[in-house]
Design a protein around this nucleic acid. Structure first.
Lengths: 235, 235
DNA sequence: CCTACCGATCGGTAGG
DNA sequence: CCTACCGATCGGTAGG
């Protein structure tokens, strides 16, 4: 059940040469002070919500004065959008890297899904994982215009799940309709942001195991079906 | 697969004689103007978030002047808490009523789970369903003290799922660890608040069907296992 | 990036 | 429940 391909490393805070789009009208890029601002903003937006987190809080957390964030970002909205885009682009990069790992394509669909699930959990709960949760839970705070732009990145991310889920549906390992299954599965994972505590409880690996056990039924010969059934019954 | 017990009706807006606790220090109860206020608050808290929805918005939506909400509620926080408690108490009442329906106890665990899932979807997405989503997605806006009180209601609600999931685990229909399974399942359902559109797409029944197909594997004789497997494989 | 500041908004209140 | 209001906070800006 465990995949034999290594996962790509987290790079949320690392510099990705072509990760960010060319500077827009709404922001400047004058070195790493901007990145510290983004980090503080992500943390505070996640903890207190966009509306409740003040630009002064964020400035203080980044070691600046109250007016300084507006040297880097045109508005509080622009700061929120930058956090979300950074998060979504990083998540997409990591998921793409995982699916392009040697050996991934030749694996069974169940192992492929496990890779997607593991990367997704790490994006949500791993170190430096404030950006994507902000995107997930503050979407309504974003002006419609920017919301639409982000939507394209989200669509790309979700598209990577479809072929895997289709294969699992075809093999009988996934019985629910693929479109609804994707919404329900991603929902189950996304909700972990609300309850997961890194300091105690399960590890991300145990989480991924539980998710795979929950969503998929084993696929194999009748003999395997019977023995799997007997094993789980005696639990 | 479909349960043969009728679900209890929604009563989110109906008066429940002993549904609300005796008036606390934070609020008064002078008839149905208060209820209109709660309704407007729930709708606006859900759409804009607690911090972004102003008490003036809420007052206007309820047909009052800007200062009037504070005649009914001591503070904006108290209004939020009232919305959440109303939602959670209604949800708990409905789930309890469903599990006490005649015939429920004698059904197979899978049919029982279907009842829980269907009630939960209706609580989240049915008519008048703004209260529980506010509770789910604005928990961090609540002062710790009140957060703890609500936690007891939530624990009661979640406790109703445990015996059913335990039975399904024992029978082999649910393979994931029960505690994690409950978190993942409720997450999958709760996330539907983010994407479900009542005006188009699937019905709540289709949603429940998909959820059951996703989470459970059929349980039965080897013969049934084989034929189920063959059927879903040809899909 | 800091200093000093403004205009608007917001939760909440006194008095009726 | 309305009227009239206050004090605090907040996003944002000018000028350096």
């Amino acid at each position: 059940m465990k995949p034999d391909v290594a996962l790509p490393p987290s790079d949320t805070t690392a510099k990705r040469p072509r990760g960010r789009p060319r500077k827009t009208v709404d922001e400047r890029d004058d070195g790493n002070r901007r990145q510290e601002l983004l980090l503080s903003a992500a943390k505070l937006f996640r903890r207190k919500g966009f509306a409740a987190a003040t630009t002064r809080d964020i400035a203080t957390a980044a070691g600046m004065q109250s007016g300084s964030p507006f040297y880097h970002f045109k508005s509080k909205d622009a700061l929120l959008y930058a956090v979300m885009e950074e998060g979504m682009r990083s998540a997409l990069d990591r998921l793409l890297a995982a699916t392009q790992m040697p050996g991934y394509a030749s694996q069974p669909a169940a192992a492929q899904l496990r890779v997607l699930v593991t990367v997704h959990f790490d994006v949500l709960l791993g170190p430096g994982s404030d950006f994507v949760p902000v995107m997930l839970y503050e979407a309504r705070s974003l002006p419609p215009r920017q919301h639409k732009t982000l939507g394209q990145l989200i669509a790309e991310y979700e598209a990577l799940w479809l072929p895997v889920l289709n294969a699992l549906h075809a093999s009988g390992e996934l019985r629910a309709p693929v479109r609804l299954a994707r919404l329900l599965i991603l929902g189950a994972l996304n909700w972990s942001v609300q309850w997961f505590d890194a300091k105690k409880g399960a590890s991300l690996q145990e989480l991924s195991d539980a998710a795979m056990d929950l969503f998929l039924r084993p696929c194999g010969t009748d003999q395997e079906l019977r023995s799997n059934f007997a094993r789980s019954s005696s639990n």
